[in-house]
Each structure stands twice: as structure tokens, then as C-alpha cells.
Design a protein around this nucleic acid. Structure first.
Lengths: 331, 331
DNA sequence: CTCCTCTACTGTCACGTGTCAGTTGGGAGG
DNA sequence: CCTCCCAACTGACACGTGACAGTAGAGGAG
């Protein structure tokens, strides 16, 4: 007794006593076909009885393209903050009658193999793709839309978090600001614009040039590494009194380092992060941070994506991602 | 000038001056077919020139099943810890010549629509599926493999983290232990076994029954909520001196609450988390936590999955997930 | 010359779907 | 009674692939 075969529209047709075409018309609700209610019900009942599910591959083949959107994340560790973006995008794409799935990989064996098992009608990239992956998508005629957080669309976008951090710190009276960026190769496209934004804010507020240092990110980030930088900044003739950090992880490590060094936060050293991660409310003091309006961001990305899917010419008008400062105890 | 069509194996055949069958044999490297080297090279060159990519949908249709594995995550917020599991599984699945993609959703509009756009040969579930989703997969004849962290395979698995936490605290001389669990509906399947594990460890160490309390998780978790519980436990005639927390987020909030109440950690109150999240090294003091051996876990899950894919009878021998205690400053 | 074998291919089918162009049967109008 | 029309359906094709069965032609043995 072998496991029963999955039922097809032919099975449904046979059971309802109609042709396969009629089944297709009923199940796809085609308004231009005259189907009497009695037949309609018979087909629907048959489909229900056999628990018919259309075959996605056959559908995609027939239609010439799938209704699948692939979110590609190469190398960016997916924290809760990014996870919120994924959730929001999933909802947005579902509303459009398509489905979003995420492919992510930190290791080798990139996008290529995945694309032989999957043909999305569109890809959305969180970070940017390397040239090999980009060529792959071009060959397969799959359009790629960049989420644009790195400022690939408008360089000004990427500067916003850094600008907000320093503008806020300047408003609090800080003069010499330290920027704790990351040396990570993959994250550079996010990190560099933020530093530029911080510099611009300092300039605009009439502050001296901020001091910039790099620490590792991800698992490699250690409190000790931050401590070394803070010690250097403290011993400066004009000591740093406030730090704008690359993200909340770096900010948390900075608070920990300051605490270990006997520096009070925010009294001796103010700290600002980016991402509004959940844990940022549980540090002591809780972190002031820069938060992305996730639903609005997802809507914006999807609007651009649909523009591409609909084959419309030109670029979709691009709204800058909306960031805001979340004021907590660390500044 | 319309955008050129994606090339098919027929295009390659035409360009190489052979039949489509020959192209298929060459590109799939079939050893049982005699193809002279000259022809082989001609076909490969043609494929390269046209940057041919096989159509995944057609392949899946012809093969009767895709080579796509769907990781389903309904409701569990995906932190860096889980993200590591995803990465490890992606690598494992890729090694087997298949591809893993993640579908996740917190909102409504469940798995159903996604399955009409996608037909995986297998699904792996992180949490468990609700009955509706389970029925959906059964109808579509898609096998589902549970990752098993919730103890769906062996109830003992789910108890391990709780057991490790309390066993460790007992070894440090703590007698009255508090268990800070979660009231979240979706997480119950993880939370309850952990509490059971904690109880068992207390029993085995000759400790009195632990005190158990629930706090919200996710965005709803606040330091204040934890503070309320800690105050109650402190005022107990036999005060709680150590807390086993549901995860590192709860543990971080507990450290923050204790700090706000003037309790020294670990002097007045020891705290242990679960998950070894990255931020756990940046709290003050850094968190003692329970860590999962992610690569081993991914290998185990994939071994069970392959057992199912190969259609082998019975159950794959199941290894318990390997957890270990990471000793830091909070206990 | 015939028969057989072996290499190097090719023609054709099937997978499950959506859709177009037909085709049937019955009723209304002349 | 014949014609026309329309509602209600059906037959057949195409999508791109993998694989089976089949075949043309060359070459060797008898």
C-alpha cells in the first residue's frame, strides 16, 4: 500500500463529471465564463473532497513566471530588528497575492545553486549582491530590487542614522564626539555613510571633527576592544564625551566597557546606538538609539518592487527611510 | 526592443547543432550515454554563450518534486541565535544538493498562500505547526520534519536547558531558585518543558520546589514586570537567590531589574539565561547562559530530514540536542 | 554481400496547469 | 421546419524539462 498520489485537477474533473477546463475556470473564478451555480458547487465539492492543491511548479511553468519573491541576505547577521523588516515585507508581499521567502547564507556556496531549485519573479536584496550573484540574476532574467538601507538609491539615505545620532548629542551640549564604526567588509556599505552623516551633523552644528574608530562586529565584537578605544579617547587632550555607535550591539558593548572603566553613563560618557533592538531596553542604563519605521520602510520597498514587476518604465519615486531617535537613559 | 527572452535548452540545442536530448545528457552529465568530447564541448560552449539556466519550475514538474526545502517559522521571533541555526541548516541542505529557504510570518495569512506559489519537497518546522497548517501539508503530500527543540520527538529534549540552569545553580550552593518563564502562547511548548527540567534538577539535587513565575516575552517584556516578580521573591520568608530565565532577553531584563532594585548580581541574585545571544556578553555583568551546539543540531535535524526524503521506513535514531553551560559573570 | 554490434545521436512522451478556439444542445424567432 | 444565437461546456495546445525507446550509419566478422 503505497502512499496515495497527490490529486490533480484531472482527478477533480473526473469526480465532478466535467472537463479539466471547467475545473480550471471554476477554481480560478473566471468571470468571463458562464458556469451555472450547480456545476460550480459540484466542482468545488469535488476539489474539497480530494483536498486538491494546485501544483505550484506546473502553474509557474504555464504562467511563465512564479509568484514568488526571494529576499536575499548574504552575510548580514539577521537580528530581531532585521527580522521585523522581513515580517513586514512578508505581510506586504502576501497582500499582493505573492509570497516572500528568505534565502540567507553566511558561508560559501552562494546564490547560484539556490536559483536552480527556485525561480522567483523578483529578488529583493538587503545588503547588496556581489557581482557574481548579480550576473546570475541577470542571466536568469530575474529583476533585483535593493532595499536601499545602504544608500544605494540615494546616498543621503545611508547618512541619516549617523546624522540623527550626532545631531542629538550636539543638542545635549557634547562637543567632542566619538564615532564607533565597524571594520566589517560586508557592513562597510552601511557603516561608511553613517560616518559621513555623523561628520555632516558635526559640521552643521559647528562642532569639531568627530573622532572615528573601528571595532569588529558580530561574534568578534568584544568589550575589551571597545575599552581600548575608549581609553584612547578619554586620554585625549580634548576628551570624547559622547559616542555614536554603529549599532545597538556596539552600543551595549560600549556601555559595558565604560562601566568596567568606572565611567558613568551618560554622566561621563553618553552612548547612542542604532536599530532599537529589543535588548536595548534591558541594558543599564537602557540605550538611546535610532529606530527605523519598519512598516513604512517595507511599504516603500514593496512599492518599488511592484513598479519593477509591472514592467513600468523609469524609477519609482523613492522616499527616504524614516528613522527616529528613541530617547532612553544612555544619553 | 523588448527585453530578450530567457534561453532554454532548445536554444542551446539549436546553437550547438544537436538535439535537445543531447543537451540534456551533456548538462546533466549522464554517464550511461556515449557523448564524444567534441560534442560535449560544443554543447557546453553553447550553454555558456547563451548563459543558459535551467527552468526550475519545469524541472520540478518533470521530476515530480522540487529540490527545495522550506523552513517554516510561525510566530517565533528570529533572533541571532535562531539565525545561526538557519545558517547552519542552509549549509547542510546545500551540501545535499538541495536548497533551503525560510518562510516566516508573525501576522495572519498563514502558510496556505505560500504553498500555492511554492512546492517544497519537505518542510522543517522550528516551532510546531497549528493543525490547519499541518492538514495543508498533509493534503499536498509534503512531509514535515520537526526540528525538535520543543521536545516533540523526545520530551526529555525540551527539559535540558532548564535542567542545566538549575543543576548549575544548585552546584553554586543556591537553595531557593526562581524560574522566570514566559506566558506566551506560541512559546509554551518550549517554556513548559524547561520548567519541568528545572523542577527535576531541583528534586535531584535535594532542593525545595522552585518558585515559578511568568513574564511576557518579545516586545512586551519590560524591566518593570520583572521587578514586580523579583520584589515578591525577595520578600519571601525564604528568599530566592538565583533565577533561571526563559531566555537571554528575560535574563537581561532580570539583571536590569535587579540593578534598579539595588540587588548585586550575582552577589544578591544569580541569573542564568538560555540561547547565548550575542548581546549577553555586553550586559553588566555578562550573562551566564545555556548554549546550543548549533552545527551539531543542524546536522541532526538534516539527518532526520534525509531519512524522510529517502522514504526510509521508521524513525531516524534521534540524538538529543547538545546544550552546554556558558559560564560568565551573572552566576 | 549479409548480419550483427556499437556509437552517437534523435523523436517523442509525460509532468499539471491555464487558456483559446471550438462544439454541442436547446430555446427563441421567423 | 429551418435558422440563429447563446449558454455551457470540451479538446487540444503550450510552457521547459528529463528520460526512454528507437534509429541511422559505420565498422567488423563470417
Amino acid at each position: 500500500m503505497e502512499r496515495s498520489r497527490r490529486s490533480t485537477s484531472a482527478d477533480v474533473a473526473r469526480r465532478a463529471g466535467v472537463s479539466r477546463a471547467t475545473v480550471s475556470y471554476v477554481l480560478n473564478g473566471r468571470a468571463d465564463q458562464a458556469i451555472p451555480e450547480s456545476t460550480r458547487q459540484r466542482v468545488l465539492a469535488a476539489a474539497r473532497d480530494l483536498s486538491y492543491t494546485p501544483n505550484a511548479a506546473a502553474r509557474a511553468l504555464r504562467a511563465g513566471e512564479s509568484r514568488l519573491v526571494l529576499l536575499v541576505n548574504e552575510g548580514i547577521p539577521l537580528g530581531p530588528a532585521m527580522s521585523r523588516v522581513v515580517d513586514a515585507l512578508t505581510a506586504e508581499v502576501a497582500r499582493a497575492g505573492r509570497s516572500l521567502v528568505l534565502w540567507q547564507s553566511t558561508g560559501p556556496g552562494g546564490l547560484g545553486p539556490a536559483l536552480t531549485h527556485l525561480d522567483p519573479c523578483l529578488t529583493i536584496t538587503l545588503g547588496s549582491l556581489d557581482d557574481a550573484a548579480r550576473a546570475l540574476l541577470a542571466d536568469a532574467r530575474i529583476p533585483a530590487v535593493d532595499a536601499g538601507l545602504g544608500g544605494d538609491l540615494d546616498p543621503a539615505d545611508g547618512e541619516i542614522p549617523g546624522w540623527l545620532q550626532v545631531d542629538h548629542l550636539a543638542g545635549r551640549g557634547h562637543r567632542h564626539i566619538g564615532v564607533l564604526s565597524t571594520g566589517d567588509r560586508v557592513l562597510r556599505r552601511f557603516a561608511e555613510p553613517r560616518v559621513a552623516g555623523a561628520r555632516r551633523a558635526a559640521r552643521e552644528s559647528g562642532l569639531p571633527e568627530p573622532s572615528v574608530a573601528q571595532v569588529p562586529t558580530g561574534e568578534a565584537l568584544s568589550v575589551g576592544a571597545v575599552e581600548t578605544v575608549l581609553a584612547r579617547w578619554r586620554d585625549d587632550p580634548d576628551p570624547v564625551t559622547a559616542v555614536a555607535c554603529y549599532n545597538d550591539y556596539v552600543a551595549a558593548a560600549t556601555v559595558a566597557a565604560a562601566t568596567r572603566m568606572g565611567l558613568a553613563v551618560p554622566g561621563d560618557l553618553a552612548v547612542v546606538g542604532v536599530d532599537n533592538e529589543q535588548f536595548s531596553r534591558y541594558t543599564s542604563p537602557p540605550l538611546t538609539t535610532v529606530s527605523l519605521d519598519t512598516p513604512a520602510f517595507a511599504r516603500e520597498v514593496w512599492a518599488r518592487a511592484q513598479h519593477v514587476l509591472d514592467g513600468l518604465p523609469g524609477e519609482h519615486p523613492h522616499d527616504a527611510p524614516r528613522f527616529s531617535l528613541v530617547l532612553r537613559g544612555s544619553s
